[in-house]
Write a protein that binds this DNA or RNA. Structure first.
Lengths: 139, 139
DNA sequence: GTGTCTGCAAAGAATTTGCAAAGAC
DNA sequence: GTCTTTGCAAATTCTTTGCAGACAC
């Protein structure tokens, strides 16, 4: 879907050196969109078992600090996921599943609403709405 | 601040048996509002060093499943926190600090907005807005 | 070339488990 | 009395580290 050079660009632009290991992690995240460490490790090693677990941890860490990836915590189970999308966007949580919910209008709506509510000097970096879906079970 | 019986009630209402260990964990969470496992362990053991780490894990787990506590993931550092507040409410993230932002009007605003946007059969359990504050540093 | 990144193996944390005794209701 | 919870100690699992060689630029 995305070309080789785009991956290279994404990593380079973030100020990181481009290595095959980083490219693989990035590729995997592009496919998964949201994933826990375990899943990333699993998928990366499927493609290339020579990449070490510790390297994957280090890459995920550098990606987060360089804002190549972001973090989401699933409120349902409290688990931590990496997210290929860095900018303002929202999430639908359906049990273990996380889906993006991209809605700039909603973002603007909230920004506008909050403008009058928070102290004037508050600098909002980002707004994320988490929508938790309930599979109404007989109970 | 909260009386003994209230703590008992909170635990009992959730369908769990009331034990001194559970009462202590609950008390600590009442004070902390938001806390990581480490912090809970630390504070609980300050009060009563006889309570085991594994017990604390088990209690936190049972509290979450019984919805005595909820989970928040700090999007800034990806760490997981427990939250004494279970119902609909929002959060301000300021680096490591998490603050509640309770605003039913905002909640309603989003509910209303989403009503027209999501598939009709989507059952929203909960909405949480995460507001990430940026300490604009010279950069 | 220089400085960063990776693999490896080991250390260190964090979390979970099995079981017997203690405790809640 | 019955079923659940706890303490203990050990096992597992998860994550980080130090260092030397490899690699990106």
């Amino acid at each position: 879907m995305e070309r080789k050079t785009d991956i290279t660009q994404a990593i380079k632009t973030a100020g990181l050196k481009v290595t095959p290991q980083r490219r693989t992690v990035y590729e995997v995240m592009q496919e998964l969109r949201h994933a826990s460490v375990d899943t990333v490790i699993e998928k990366v090693r499927e493609r290339n078992p020579d990449i070490t677990v510790s390297t994957i941890y280090r890459i995920l860490d550098s990606f987060c600090r360089a804002k190549v990836l972001s973090s989401v915590g699933n409120p349902a189970d409290g688990k931590h996921y990496f997210d290929i999308t860095v900018g303002n966007h929202h999430h639908l949580f359906d049990g273990q599943k996380i889906a993006d919910y991209d809605d700039p209008e909603l973002t603007r709506l909230i920004y506008r609403y909050l403008a009058g509510k928070l102290p004037g000097d508050t600098n909002i970096d980002k707004i994320q709405v988490q929508i938790i879906i309930n599979h109404l079970k007989s109970e």
